[in-house]
Structures are given as structure tokens and as C-alpha cells.
Simulated scan of single mutants.
Amino acid sequence: MKIVNSIKELKQFLAGERQENRQIGLVPTMGALHEGHLSLVKHCVEENEICVVSIFVNPTQFNDKRDLETYPRTLEKDCALLEPTGCKYVFAPTVEEMYPEPDNRTFDFGTVSQVMEGAKRPGHFNGVAQIVSKLFYAVEPDNAYFGEKDFQQIAVIRAMVKQLNIPVKIKDCPIIREADGLALSSRNTRLTPELRQKAPLIARTLKESTTFASAKSVQEVIGYVVKTINSDPDMEVEYYEIVDGNTLESIKNWSDTNFPVGCITVYCGEVRLIDNIKYK
């Protein structure tokens, strides 16, 4: 496994791999790796001859400076986790390497980037599009792997790939959860032991809501989820929306879509956690 810090060096290595007709897969990450990331790496290794994992905390997608400052950075530990996986290259650039000058590109992906996270975190998805497109141009992967926990992000990246005409297949992989249901996230490390005990309420409530959704209206299901989670004084739902899984437009009736997905963001103490669930 090689650790590469420059785009030029990475391109040189990958040019050699392409000359041998090896298929290349990319797993973009911000580090602080956990089993969720490693499941993406596993898919990548199984489906491609060459697996590249990028580790880069991207400043342009943080609309909260404090969130950027507190985001965990554990490169040495991350590389130790990747070593036995079959990953061939770790691309770990500096901010200066990825942004030698300011990236002033602005993207318009319509609804998929304007609702939910797009509304609550202005500029977030524009920053995601900036960095992911830069990574795609640097690596030129055949396939790129993303976790379904970031459901809206995948929709944005699909829209970006289409808009920029980038020849890469976007592969979405299932959410990996702890035994108690909590969706794996690098942010979970910031939960106090007490809050870590409470956080599984999110997944538990979402799962429970699927058991009676067909007998209730969309609004009744949303009301149940929000009320149940907010009943814990340490938890606060920022939003819970049930949307069409393709367009991400909110639905009013179950008949509005054949792909209803519930997307939620909850503050557990000061830690912002996201999750989602499919209703059919």
C-alpha cells in the first residue's frame, strides 16, 4: 500500500496501472475511518483491480468553522486500518495541494441540493461537488463508492457526474450500523458515554415507524418520529422529511412515489447525527 500526497505522483502511479488495463475504484473519505468506510473499501477491492482511498478533510463543505476544527483527524490510525484491506493507494493531500487557489465554481443541481441538508447547511453541497469533482479528475476512477448514510449526498454526486459528464459509475453501499442500530459515523466518537447510550433512539424510532407506516398518513409518521425522539431532553430533531428517493422532493401521500425514504438529522447534545430509512 502506497501513501501518496501529490496529485502529480498519484496520476503517474495510476497511469501505469491503466497501461496494464487495471480497473480503478475510488473510496472518497474524510478519514476517521470506521467499519462503514471499510465496507466501502471491501466493495471497491472486490470489484476493481486497484483500490484508491482518499483521506481529506475538505474545508469548503463545512459551513460551521467549529465543526471543521473539531472534525477528527487520524491519518496514522486510518492507514493502519487500510493496510490489510487490499487498498493499493491512499491519497492524503494537504489543503494547499487540493486548493492551490480558491475554487470559485458554483453548482446548481436543483432540488436535490436545495432541500434538507442543502437548506440547513448553505454551501455544503457546493463544497462536496468541488472536492469530489477534483478527486474524480485526479484519480479518473471507473467506479466510486459512497455510503447510503449520506443519502442526499449520493443524489448530489450523481447529479454532478451527469452535469459535468464525468465517466464514472457511482456505487451506493448499505448503511453499516452498530449492534444497537446506531449508524456508523466519524462523529459518533464525539458523543459522551451517556449520549452514546441515547443515540440509538434515532434508528430505533425510524425502524419502528416502518411497522405501521402503511396504516398511517405521511404526516402522522413524521409526527410520531419527531415526537418520540424529541421526548428525550438531550435529543432534538432538526428535520425529518419523507421524500421521493430519486428527486428528494417531499411527499404528502404514500402514493406520490414508489421509493419513499425518510431522512433525518438529530442533535444529540451538540453532535449532529444523520440517518435515513426506506419505507418500501
Rank of each mutant, 00 (worst) to 15 (best):
P141D: 06
R158Q: 12
D142W: 10
P167C: 11
D172R: 13
N143G: 03
D172M: 15
D180I: 03
R177I: 02
G123F: 13
V128E: 02
K171Q: 05
K171V: 15
H124W: 13
P174T: 05
G127A: 09
I154Y: 06
P141W: 11
K162M: 05
A144D: 04
K169L: 14
I166S: 03
I166Y: 10
D150P: 12
K162V: 00
E148Y: 00
I166P: 04
I170R: 06
V168M: 07
V168H: 08
A159E: 12
A138H: 02
G147P: 08
Q152N: 06
K171R: 15
N165V: 15
F125N: 03
N165F: 15
K149Q: 07
Y137V: 01
K149L: 03
C173V: 14
E140M: 15
P141A: 10
F146S: 05
N143H: 14
I131K: 00
K149W: 00
N143S: 03
A179M: 04
V156F: 11
K149G: 03
M160D: 11
A159N: 11
V132W: 04
A155W: 00
D180E: 14
P167T: 07
D150V: 13
A159T: 01
R158H: 09
R158T: 06
R121F: 00
Y145N: 07
I154D: 04
C173L: 01
I166G: 01
I170F: 04
S133C: 13
N126D: 14
R177G: 02
V168Q: 07
F151S: 09
A129H: 00
I176L: 13
Y145T: 01
P141F: 11
S133G: 00
A129P: 04
K171E: 07
P141R: 06
R158A: 05
N143C: 11
V128T: 06
S133V: 12
G123W: 12
P174W: 09
D142V: 02
V139H: 07
R158Y: 10
K162R: 15
R177E: 02
P141G: 10
K162F: 08
R121V: 02
F151W: 06
I154K: 05
G127P: 12
M160V: 06
A179P: 02
A144N: 03
A155E: 01
I131L: 08
F146N: 05
Q152H: 05
Q152S: 04
K169Y: 06
L135T: 00
E140R: 15
V156M: 10
K171Y: 01
K169T: 14
I176Q: 12
D142A: 13
V132T: 10
E178L: 00
Q153T: 03
A129Q: 09
V168D: 07
A179V: 04
A179F: 02
D142L: 12
I154S: 11
F136Y: 14
G181R: 01
S133E: 14
V156Q: 07
S133Y: 13
Q152I: 12
I131T: 10
D180A: 11
Q153P: 10
Y137I: 07
A179W: 00
D172F: 01
Y137F: 14
G127V: 08
H124P: 08
D150W: 14
A138T: 08
A129N: 03
I176K: 15
N165H: 14
I131H: 04
A144Q: 08
F151N: 04
I154A: 14
V139F: 11
S133L: 15
V168F: 05
Q153N: 11
